[in-house]
């Protein structure tokens, strides 16, 4: 697990970026809202946060 952590973190982060980009493209201008666009933005940001956190946990020098 510890050895694969950077790759897992990068994969999760990239997946989040893709979801965020697709969601941002789908999302119409204000004041309209898109259920799909905002869902993808939320999921994308979630994966990005998890990916960054995963990397920070792996990079912690106490490991």
């Amino acid at each position: 697990m510890e050895m694969k952590a950077p790759l897992v973190a990068a994969g999760i982060f990239l997946l989040g970026l893709v979801l965020l980009a697709v969601g941002a493209l789908i999302e119409p201008p204000r004041p309209q809202i898109s259920q799909s666009g905002e869902s993808l933005i939320a999921l994308g940001l979630t994966f990005i946060v998890v990916g960054v956190g995963f990397f920070l946990a792996w990079a912690n020098p106490t490991a």
């Binding site: 259920q35 939320a42 999921l43 940001l45 979630t46 998890v50 956190g53």
Partner: peptide, 26 residues
């Protein structure tokens, strides 16, 4: 006015909480 995006945004909120808790309580 929101649909299922509220559910995923709630997941985002609690993920931020969990990520910070997991990183700091170590």
């Amino acid at each position: 006015p929101y649909g299922i995006q509220a559910l995923f945004t709630n997941l985002f909120w609690h993920t931020i909480y969990g990520v910070n808790l997991g990183l700091l309580f170590s």
